[in-house]
Structure formats: C-alpha cells, structure tokens
Design a protein around this nucleic acid. Structure first.
Lengths: 411, 411
DNA sequence: CCGGTTTTTGTGGATTTCCACAAATTCAAC
DNA sequence: GTTGAATTTGTGGAAATCCACAAAAACCGG
C-alpha cells in the first residue's frame, strides 16, 4: 500500500459524510463511536444491518449487553491495547454479526472506534490497512467533538456543584438551568458516591467515566469527582428505586474489579427524592453512609443506601447523648459483667441473633453451636439481664445499646 | 360493769408494762400494734403463743400474709369501723389461733390495735368490755409514741428530699446521714413513684402509708409525698430487682383498689443503682416513665420500670431531632400513602406485628385476620416500602419511626 | 354491571421452632 | 482430684412457620 492511494484524504464536512465514505470504500455498513461507545456517526445507505447495530443507532449508544459481551470476548480490551484492526466473530446471543473494528487514537489514548459490519463479505488484508488509515483520518473530527463536549461538561459540572451545596434554592430556577443544558428532568433521583482508596488518577477517571457512560442500568443525570470520590446524580426509573440503585452499585463495583482491577471501592447513596432542592440532602446522606462504613465495617457490609442504614442513621446523635452521660443500660452492663467473669459470649450471642433476624438455625450455624445451646443462652440472657424476650421493645433497646457500645469504642 | 372497777387505771411506765397488765387481767397473751401493724408492745410471761404471734414478735411487725387474711376475713375492716372488740376465728393457713381484737382511737382515727390471743379459753362478755377500757387507756401512751415518730419522720423526709434533688453529693456524707437516722443501707435501690388522679387527701395518705408499711414484698427505706405523687425509695433484695419492683407495684395497685377503692393510680420507677448519689437520677427516670405513660397510654401499658421503656427512653431526644427537620423515612411515607389511597392498614399491621414480638399467630388474632393474610400483607409491605424483612435493622427503624410518628402526634 | 386486580382465606406438606427432659461435657472452687 | 454447678448437646413430639398454589371475596375504573 503506497501513501498516495489513501482514500480518506481531503476534507469532510461532517463525520456522517466521513462514515459514508468509509462505507463506500469498504462496501460495508460503518459505525463510528466515541470512547464510551456512544454513537457519533453511521453510514446511511446500507441494505443490511444486524440487530446490534440497529439498537445502537436507535438509542444512540451501544447496548450495555453488547458492550459486556465484547469485553468478555476480548475485542474491546484488544482495541484499547493496539492500533491494529480486530475481527470479531458473530455473537448471536446479543445480535452481533461478524465485524471488524479499529480504535481511533490521540497520543496514547483511545478516543473512539470505527466498526465495520461484514454483511456478506470479508475484508481483505488490504482493506484492513485502509481501515487503519480511516481511523487516523477520523481523529481530528472526533477530537473537535470532544472539545465541544468538554466545554459543555465544565458548565454542567459547575451547576452540579451548586446543586450539591444547595447554592440554588428555588426549584424553578434549578429546572431552568437543567433544561438549558439539555439535562432531562427525572421524577426521582438520588446522589450516589463512590469512594476509592486513593485520589483519582486521570487514567482511573477515564475508566470510571467509561463504565458510567456505558452503564444503562441506571440513568445518570450528572457526574463529577472530588478527591477520591465520584459523585453521581442517578435517576431510578422504577418504583423500586432502592433495588435499582443497589443493583447498579453492585454491577459497577464488579466491573471495576474485573475490567480494571480496581478493588477498593466503597459506595453510599442518599435518600431518593423528587425535589431538586433536596439534592444536597441526598449528598449529605450519601457521605454519611460512607462515614459510617468506615467506622462500622462489617456491621453494614452490603448496605449502600441511607434508607437501609436503619438504626445507624441516628447513631451519631445517640452517641452524642451517651457521651453527655446519663445513658445507661443496666441489662447490658450485667451481661458484660457476666461475660467478663465467666468468659462467656452472651452479648455477642444476642447481637448475632439479632444480626440474623432472630433466626435460631442461622445464628446457631454462624456461632458454631447447637440450636439448643443458643436457646439456652437466650434464656440465660433473659434471666441475667431481666430481659423479657417476648418484648420486642426491650430487645431492640439492648440491641441498639450493644451496637452503640461497639460504635462508641471505634468512633 | 361499773366505772370503779376499771382495772387499767393509774400510771404505767411503759407500754410493755401495760401489755403485761392487760394480759394478767384477761389471762391471755396480749399484743399491741400501731395503726400499721407494727409491734409496739407485747406481754412477756406467756406460756403459749401461736405461730403468727411468734413471727410478729420476731420481726417486730405483723407478717403481710397475716394482714392480708385478716383483711379478707373482715376483721381489720371491722376494727377500722367500730370501737367494739372483734373476735377472729382461727385461720390455720397463716398460723392464727382464735383471738379477740380492739382498735385504739384518737378522735376519729385508729392509731393502734390490741390483740388478745384466746389460747385455751374464751373471753366472756365482761372481759370484752374490759378490753374496750384497755384500748381507751392505751390511747395516750400510743399517741406519745406517734409524736416521737413524727418528729423523726420530719427530719427523715427532709433528708429524702435532699437526696431526690441531689443536694448531697458525697457518698460518705449520705451514708452518715442515713446511719444517723437508723435507716439501713441497701446494696441496691430504686425510686418508685405512684401518681394518683388528684392531690392526696389526709385520708388517702393514711391509707397509702398503711399499705406501704404493711407491705413486706419490697423493703422501703424512705417515703414522702409531693402533690399527687407518692415517692418511695425501695431496696430490692434479690438479683432480679426489676421483677421484684414490678410485683410490688402490681400488688400495691391491686390492694389500693380492693381495700380502698382507689383505681386511678399510675406508677413508674427509675433505674436500680447501688450508689446513693444516683437517687436523683432514679427519681428523674421514674418521672420520665410517668410522663411517657401519659403520652403513650396503651403502648406501654404494664411497663413501670425505666429500664423496660426500651426505645421510648430516647424518644424525647429523637423527637427533638425530628422536629429539627432532616428526619425522613421514605419507607414509612410510602406505606402511609398506600394506606391513605387504598384505605388499608399496612402501617398498623406492621406495628402490631412488632408489638407482638413478630409472632404471626398472635398478631393475626389481634387483628382478626387469617395468618396468611398477615403474611401477605407483610410481603406487600416489603414490596411497597422496599423493606428487607430479613433485615432486623431496617425493621427496627421502621418500627421506631411508626412509634415516633404516633408519639409526635400526641406530644 | 363488567372484567381485572387486589386482598383474603383455605389447603397441604416440608421445615423450623418450642419445650421438657436427659445425658454428656466443661468449669471452677475447695 | 473431686464435686457440684453451669453449659452444651441430644432426642422426640406438639405446635408454629414457611411456601406455593388455588379458590373465594372485595374493590375499582370504565
């Protein structure tokens, strides 16, 4: 291949025009995506496209399950490593026909992809080389798009921070701002905060941003970072927002781990509200979850939502009162005294029992004792602490005091 | 009987001497008690006494069960009504032989009793008249005793109020004061407060005092009144002080009702402590129980001890926070919204379920529904409120918030 | 009034709890 | 060490819970 045969020389008005040109040259449908698999342009006059391409064009982004399978299959990792074109065999599960892709680079960074759908032909090695040229030719156009986006992004971030810090009080004004920036309104939303082990590097930010952009589980309205935190405004769309948020977090964490080998991610989210004025509150609550996780560790493992913190929501408050003095639980003190004297584990037994929803079997398993042993200990606890095991109220108080004591010891 | 045959004329050095005299005249063992059945004097040279009398002399008070049976049998009510001697047939259950008694009066008030044990003879009508004379003759001596007691009583009350209001801080000083007044120290104690419907009348005070003095279930170290409150310093003697206190209260209230027809008695007691400095705290806690009872009514029926208040202990505190704002429970709000819209009772269902210790059967009975209905509703609650029914923590939070809402509505 | 949804009640069976009692084991104090 | 008390484990049967599924009843919007 000699340089004077480059078919992508010259100027193109738009990336659409460019896509059509590539399509003409290779005689295949062509799609151009940005680094986050959002559709930038696609060739128009194509006779055949597979379901995956159709879905991509309709929703202006690559469906998440397609992205997932391309990660699993290895195509995306390969494209992120090398400038060479990659051929992907058909993946029928997700409606992918056979295709060839190449990544678009700027310096050491991938800023987009060109996908060529091999409808009823296979690209020759020479055509593969042409594709590489196409990727180089696309670079500047894609970059321009980036610049424009970044400028807008900056303004959006500024707005987001104003919302997070309650700088705009009037609901109408907030709505006006959001509309001006083309940010859709949502009937309900919550702030989600991911906290990483260390301050975010540019590399990590790119990876996180990539994951967030490609995730379609939870609509994300806004996004920013702060030190080691990533802050999101998520907008659950079902009437079970907590479940949705939890699922999103789990899957995000899992993907961070398996795709980028980043393990140490904590997460919390605040209350789900429908008034934008409460964004700041949701943010505070998300931070409260993270602060509690730091302290309580195991006790609230797997809990991300402020709403699911349960009694821990007001622990700081109770602790304050406890420190003021006049907060005693004689029952607990007696149990502790007994434990100390007889090297027993009554307090822990009770705590575990409640941690496991008063389920005898489960608790006995966790403690490695016979269920009857557990029953015996509970009766013993009732005697020693003068606790009526049929009185939920008293049991709750003891449980809270046990947790509070732990909390106090740490906090 | 002519007046010049009165065998109890003249002076007696002491009540003991007087008792001996009566015993000589009637040829029977004689016991003199004050209005509260405390032993004042008894005749010495008796050949035979029944177990009840022995016990009375040993412990310097009439055993409670003897008093109880004399109330039931009717002797004491009769003695309180009339100045005539009363004959009591043997009550073997409590070791009482046949005896005759007469009350000692001052104006319209009974200030003591003379008991004559009919060992192996029966008093003749004439002797019965002599007994009446004996009662009259005893009056002044008994009164003197009262005066002395009252003076001491005043000083003791003053001390008690100092303790209740934390006017003496040093433990040693408190002990010294108590010792100076012959008040025994106790390893543990708590303040008990009975609150009546209206300010106490002299009449009621006498009745209450009577009951307290004759009660031997719970050792009472100190006693005073304040408006409609009766304040006690009780000293439980077992290692299950709460049970002891509860039993005492139940029995006190029952006796107030059946003997004096006083129904409207509320009661609360504070924490059980072993340091006198904490008397004031226990008092505050007892008052807190009463205040909560006023507000919560049914919710803490049958609860008297501060320790058994459970979560209500910190309800005032939480309410304060709630009123400051930023206290929301979306789960509860959703349930309430659902209830309003569908005229259902999900919130009440959950509350009742927890009130009854998560017992399905019991709750279903109380709500008059099929157990499966309850199960269905709970599942519904879990869906609507996005509540994990296996997570005690979340359930507790919801329960607290439900109670808190009720509490707020009232308080 | 209809048709569909929600709610209540019913049935049956596997599993779990509850309870009382007994045997085995551990612990502590003398 | 021995002894007695406290603790753990075991057994068995009655009762309760859990679960899935189905029929009946109540409710609601058009």
């Amino acid at each position: 291949m000699s340089h004077y045969t480059d078919p992508f020389r010259g100027e193109f008005d738009s990336l659409e025009e460019f896509a059509d040109r590539v399509s003409d040259v290779l005689k295949c449908p062509v799609t151009i995506e940005d680094a986050n698999h959002r559709l930038i342009a696609y060739s128009a006059h194509d006779d055949y496209t597979d379901p995956a391409r159709t879905a991509t064009i309709i929703s202006r982004r690559v469906p998440e399950k397609v992205i997932n399978s391309l990660w699993k299959q290895g195509a995306i990792p390969a494209l992120l490593k090398s400038r060479e074109p990659v051929r992907v065999p058909p993946i029928h599960d997700v409606g992918l026909g056979s295709r060839v892709a190449v990544s678009i680079w700027k310096n050491d960074e991938v800023i987009g992809f060109i996908w060529v759908l091999e409808t009823n032909r296979t690209l020759s090695p020479e055509e593969m080389e042409w594709l590489k040229l196409a990727a180089k030719a696309a670079k500047n156009k894609v970059l321009q798009l980036y610049m424009r986006k970044n400028k807008k992004e900056e303004r959006v971030q500024e707005l987001f921070w104003k919302l997070l810090t309650s700088h705009i009080a009037a609901e109408d004004e907030i709505r006006a701002h959001l509309a001006a920036m083309q940010i859709p309104t949502a009937p309900q939303f919550a702030i989600v905060v991911f906290r990483f082990a260390a301050d975010l590097t540019a590399e990590m930010e790119r990876q996180i941003s990539y994951l967030l952009q490609t995730t379609q589980q939870l609509p994300l309205l806004l996004y920013t970072t702060d030190g080691r935190d990533v802050i999101l405004l998520g907008a659950p769309k079902t009437d079970q927002p907590l479940k949705e948020l939890n699922a999103f977090i789990e899957s995000f964490a899992a993907k961070m781990k398996e795709r980028f080998h980043i393990h140490d991610v904590q997460c919390g989210f605040g209350g789900v509200y429908s008034v934008y004025r409460l964004i700041e509150k949701s943010y505070r609550e998300a931070l409260a979850v993270l602060a509690l996780k730091e302290k309580l560790g195991d006790d609230i493992n797997g809990v991300y939502g402020y709403a699911q913190l349960g009694i821990y929501q007001f622990f700081d408050f109770l602790l304050e009162k406890k420190r003021q003095g006049d907060w005693t639980n004689l029952a607990l003190e007696k149990l502790q005294a007994y434990d100390r004297k007889h090297h027993s584990d009554l307090v822990k037994t009770f705590e575990t029992f409640f941690d496991h929803n008063e389920n005898v079997q489960e608790t006995a398993d966790v403690l490695n004792v016979h269920p009857n042993t557990l029953a015996y200990r509970l009766k013993r606890i009732a005697d020693i602490a003068e606790l009526d095991l049929n009185d939920m109220n008293q049991k709750i108080k003891l449980y809270i005091d046990i947790k509070l004591a732990k909390y106090e010891a740490r906090g």
